[in-house]
């Protein structure tokens, strides 16, 4: 059927059997600690002693490193370079290039910020690799998240690849009819309308039909809905969540206390 935009990989591991909310808490805790901890090396340590071992534990390490190389490192590396060169802090100049100079302080600052971004993104990647989006959403819905939110997230992930494919088709079609997408600025600006038009009107035409279809399935009904899949939530999961929350509180408290 439809291709779904999802990183999820079905494996049989301890992490895969955790409750989705526990994994979400874990990810948010990692990010919050990386951003609030007063100690300079915390984000770096988190990557080494938490995120990478966790990806091995979840048996998704090869995919994790592939995503890291393709997505995370280029973004973090670019941020690192921009900040290392452009931050106007510090005195000890290490490297000079025209009006830009890299100082020891800006280098340290950039290194930490880039690692924080790595923690943020790789933690999310880890969550997406080990958790199916519908599983996460149905667990959150069961805990009281309005069903409409779950619908928006899941159906966006479904529509997006279709829309991207449609955009590619429209570009190719208009190019084959001689639409200029490569020459001067004015021409390219002008070719925006024949590209956006078909894409947007085509998708907006579906809205009413979809609305009627989901309304027929009781979308706005206030009754409690039953679920086909029961997602287990053992007490060990609750314990893990509490430990994580306490760790975050400690990190924030230390930050406030020390600064």
């Amino acid at each position: 059927m439809h291709e779904r935009l999802s990183f999820y990989i079905k494996r049989n591991s301890v992490i895969h059997h955790l409750n989705p909310l526990t994994k979400l808490t874990l990810v948010l805790a990692l990010i919050l600690i990386a951003f609030t901890s007063p100690w300079y090396w915390t984000p770096h340590l988190l990557v080494l002693i938490a995120i990478i071992p966790l990806s091995f534990l979840g048996k998704v390490a090869p995919e994790f490193f592939k995503t890291a190389l393709r997505l995370i490192l280029p973004a973090a590396g670019f941020l690192f370079l921009m900040q290392a060169f452009f931050q106007p802090v510090g005195e000890t100049v290490i490297f000079k290039f025209y009006f830009l100079d890299m100082t020891q302080e800006s280098l340290m600052f950039a290194f930490r910020n880039a690692t924080r971004v790595i923690v943020m993104v790789s933690a999310f990647t880890f969550l997406l690799l080990t958790t199916h989006p519908s599983e996460l959403m149905s667990d959150l819905t069961r805990r009281g998240l309005p069903g409409q939110f779950a619908y928006v997230i899941i159906s966006t992930l479904q529509i997006l690849p279709q829309m991207q494919a449609k955009a590619q088709t429209i570009i190719s079609a208009q190019r084959s009819r001689g639409l200029d997408t490569e020459s001067s600025f004015i021409r390219r600006m002008g070719s925006l309308t024949p590209l956006i038009g078909p894409l947007v009107f085509g998708s907006l035409a579906e809205v009413e039909e979809r609305a009627i279809a989901i309304e027929a399935r009781g979308f706005t009904s206030k009754k409690v809905k039953t679920s086909l899949h029961e997602i287990p939530d053992p007490s060990s999961d609750k314990l893990i969540r509490w430990v994580l929350i306490i760790l975050v509180i400690i990190s924030i408290a230390l930050k406030l206390w020390l600064s």
Binding site: Y151, S155, I214
Partner: peptide, 8 residues
């Protein structure tokens, strides 16, 4: 309902 369908 139409809003919720339009958002995605």
């Amino acid at each position: 309902t139409q809003t919720w369908v339009l958002i995605p």
